[in-house]
């Protein structure tokens, strides 16, 4: 039986970060889409089911915390795992991320093999993408 390709959404306003995470996850076998801010991410999640979200914190239009809250709200209601990755390592940032609904909060830079390992672990179940 062949395993269905997992779908990931990379959300970051920095083009280079999007490219980096897209390349890492794409090389690891994920089908990856990109969004440049939280609003685009919510629109993408309403249109497509994703198995994984990789979300930045500081973004224009809709920041990462609000984005994750919206993904978890009735509006979108996705149960897919969310990894938040930020340059911010202030006290309370991780708590804020988990309160919003993230499964994991990582501080940049994240080693490539670590991100891939985490992505595979978090999506090792039956998957949620439509």
């Amino acid at each position: 039986m062949t395993q269905t390709q997992r779908k990931a959404l990379v959300v970051d306003d920095a083009a280079t970060v999007r490219m980096y995470h897209t390349t890492l996850l794409g090389d690891a076998g994920f089908e990856v889409q990109e969004a440049a801010n939280g609003l685009e991410a919510v629109e993408a999640a309403l249109a497509t089911g994703f198995d994984l979200f990789v979300v930045d914190v500081n973004m224009p239009k809709m920041n990462g915390y609000t984005c994750v809250e919206t993904l978890r709200s009735e509006t979108v209601g996705t149960p897919a795992p969310v990894v938040m990755i930020s340059t911010e390592d202030r006290p309370g940032d991780a708590d804020r991320a988990y309160a919003a609904g993230a499964n994991l909060y990582l501080v940049k830079p994240v080693a490539p093999e670590r991100l891939v390992r985490i992505a595979r672990l978090l999506t090792s179940g039956p998957g949620v993408a439509a």
Binding site: N58, P60, Y65, G92
Partner: peptide, 12 residues
């Protein structure tokens, strides 16, 4: 700021 929305809005 510890408030992500505020620091991003201030930067904008």
């Amino acid at each position: 700021s510890d408030d992500a929305e505020l620091r991003t809005a201030a930067a904008e």
